[in-house]
Amino acid sequence: MSQSNGKPIVEVSNLDVFFNTTQGKLHAIRSANWSVSQGETLVILGESGAGKSVSVHAATGLLPGTAEITGSIKFEGEEILGGSEETLRQLRAEKIGVIFQDPLASLDPCFKVGAQIAEIFTVHRGMSKSEAWAEAVKLLDSVQIPDPERRANQFSHQLSGGQRQRVVIAMAIALSPTLLIADEPTTALDASVQVAVLELIKKLRNERKMAVVLITHNIGVAASIADRIAIMYGGRIVEIGDTKEVLQSPRHPYTQALLASMPKIGAGASKRLVTITGTPPSLATIPGGCAFHPRCTRAIAKCSDVVPEIELNKNGSLHSFACHNPEEAN
């Protein structure tokens, strides 16, 4: 596992995202703060609907036009929030690579995968078609697709799920971005392939010194790749810290509950799985106070009234959480 040692790539502070919908304004992300540095992997963990993707894509400009974003997003030190569409497009082209959940949908069914990769080089690097094609084949090889020449000539529906995701990864890293965003990159894949894809992402991160932000709802995935983990619930980051600290000594009851709901490798059958009662809130119906309080076993009176603020860098610790009545530290 690599360590965060490089310069910060993305710094998100006080990020709020609203969506204007027909039902009114939805407050999707509330005061999010996170950052990721070169060579570091930040995993954003949470149930679906927690706002994981939104908080990340606010940085890529891929949110729909109805989104209203406030706060600050700095990319390599430059403020990009409020920048023009063109600046964001350039940023996406050169600096950010994105991997999406469903590799089949992510690829254009009408073009050969090689052509889709080559298009990146012809558009952004001005290469000739044949140069771009050669580059595409090379890239397919580097994402460990066997027989890349033949695969380049195939269409997405002719590839296996794992191969497709490798193609998507190849496209994402084609222009050597400094930031790789992987949005549930393994969710749609078979378990056996998941590991290989994660290993590939790790390998590429290490080789290319990329910052990686990986979004997942799977703690196992998070544990296997993350340097740091941010736990999201109801549009907020409720806990953030080094992987080890968050997973071994979770302070937020939600993190605690999340971990308890997961089977642990080597834990044996003795430890029973605990499910969280209730359902996660939708963005439209987030309860007042602490969003988790209706489902929380440790809720106190204050929890339903006052939103617990996350205290960053409290006492110099990188492990922060937002809870009025946190779990005991191990």
Partner: peptide, 26 residues
């Protein structure tokens, strides 16, 4: 709303390229 359109955007392609090359073909 298709994934490949999102992919195209994430790759920094212009709208024109996405519309006229990819969507139109589809």
């Amino acid at each position: 709303n298709r994934g490949y359109v999102r992919t195209g955007k994430s790759l920094g392609f212009t709208n024109a390229r996405i519309w006229f090359k990819h969507i139109l073909r589809n």
